[in-house]
C-alpha cells in the first residue's frame, strides 16, 4: 500500500531527524566537542597559585586548544600546585622551555592554561616538565597590593586550628574554604566579633597534612572572581617555624570592597562617597 509506505517514510525521516538532533546536542554543544580524541602525552607544571583552574580545563597555544588539564594536586610539602597537562600527540613540537600561564577567559570566564613557546631546540616529551610557570592572577592582587612574609609548622591529628584577626571579614561565612596556592586546605570554623579589640576573630581549621605552613604566613580574605563567594587565602611566609594548633596568624589582610578599589583608580569613582571600612586597612597588625 502506498499509504502505508508514505507513513513509513515520513516516520523514518522523523526518527532520523530526532537522532540527528541528539547527535548534534551531544557532540557539538558539549565538552565532547573539546575532548581530545587522539592519543596524548602528559607533562607537568608547578604553579604557585592555580586560582579557579579545574580539571579538564583547556590548554591553549596562541588561543588554539592543544590539550586539557588532567589532574591538579597540591604537593603536601610545598606550597605549589602540581598540574598535569594532557597534550594531543599531534602537537609534539612544543619547546621544553615554554612558559605555562593560567589565564582567565574574560572577566568571569573559566580559567585555562596558556603556553607561550620558548626558543629551545628540544621539544617536550611524555612525562616532561614545564619549568617556567606563571600563577593565576587574583583580582585582589592585581588591583590592591600584594602582601606577604614567611614561617613554618608542626604535627597534630585531624585538623589543627589557628586564629586570625581581621578588621573586616566582608561577606566571609563559616565553612568558607581556606586556600593556599589556590588549593583548599581547610575551612573557616568560626567568626566572632572581639568585644574589646573591636575586630573580627576568625578560627581556621586546617588539614593536618598541611603542617608546614610558616608561622609568619599571611591570611587574606579574597573573593573568587568578581561576584563569587569569599574565602581565606594563606600566603606563605619565610619563617623556619611552622604554624601550630592554637597559633594566631599575625599578618592579615581584610576583605576588600571592590568599590573602594575601583574608586582608587577612578578619581570620579561612583563609590567615593561610601564609608571606607575594610578596604584600606589591608595588612594591619595585631
Amino acid at each position: 500500500m502506498s499509504q502505508r509506505q508514505s507513513y513509513a517514510v515520513g516516520t523514518g525521516l522523523f526518527i532520523v531527524l530526532g537522532f540527528t538532533a541528539l547527535g548534534y546536542l551531544a557532540t557539538q554543544t558539549t565538552s565532547v566537542a573539546n575532548s581530545s580524541r587522539g592519543p596524548s602525552y602528559t607533562v607537568e607544571a608547578h604553579f604557585a597559585n592555580i586560582g579557579q583552574l579545574k580539571e579538564r580545563a583547556p590548554v591553549k597555544v596562541a588561543g588554539v586548544r592543544v590539550g586539557q588539564v588532567q589532574s591538579i594536586v597540591l604537593d603536601p610539602g610545598k606550597e605549589t600546585a602540581d598540574v598535569k597537562l594532557a597534550i594531543d600527540q599531534r602537537y609534539n613540537q612544543i619547546p621544553d622551555d615554554s612558559v605555562a600561564t593560567i589565564f582567565t577567559s574574560g572577566l568571569l570566564g573559566d580559567q585555562y592554561v596558556g603556553l607561550r613557546y620558548g626558543t629551545s631546540k628540544k621539544t617536550l616529551a611524555d612525562g616532561g616538565e614545564l619549568a617556567l610557570t606563571r600563577p593565576a592572577q587574583q583580582l585582589e592582587e592585581m588591583l590592591g597590593k600584594f602582601f606577604g612574609a614567611g614561617g613554618v609548622a608542626d604535627n597534630l591529628g585531624g585538623s589543627y586550628v589557628v586564629k586570625a584577626r581581621f578588621t573586616n571579614v566582608g561577606a566571609l561565612s563559616v565553612g568558607a574554604p581556606v586556600k593556599m596556592a589556590g588549593v583548599a586546605i581547610g575551612s573557616v570554623q568560626s567568626i566572632n566579633a572581639d568585644p574589646v579589640k573591636l575586630d573580627a576573630l576568625v578560627t581556621l581549621a586546617i588539614d593536618k597534612r598541611y603542617n608546614q605552613i610558616p608561622d609568619d604566613s599571611a591570611a587574606a580574605v579574597f573573593t573568587s572572581g568578581l561576584i563569587g563567594t569569599q574565602y581565606v587565602a594563606i600566603q606563605p611566609g619565610g619563617s623556619p617555624d611552622a604554624l601550630k594548633n592554637g597559633d594566631e596568624m599575625v599578618l592579615t589582610q581584610s576583605a576588600m570592597q571592590i568599590e573602594d578599589l575601583i574608586g582608587k583608580f577612578l578619581v570620579s569613582g561612583s563609590s567615593s562617597g561610601k564609608p571606607a571600612d575594610g578596604g584600606k586597612s589591608d595588612g594591619d597588625k595585631h
Binding site: 541528539l22 551531544a26 557539538q28 554543544t29 558539549t30 565538552s31 566537542a33 573539546n34 583547556p58 577567559s105
Partner: peptide, 18 residues
Amino acid sequence: WSNMTATVEVVKDVINGV
C-alpha cells in the same frame, strides 16, 4: 560556542537532562 562547549557536559546535561 566555546563557552557552551566548555561547560555543557554530555552525561549530566544531555543524557540525564534531556
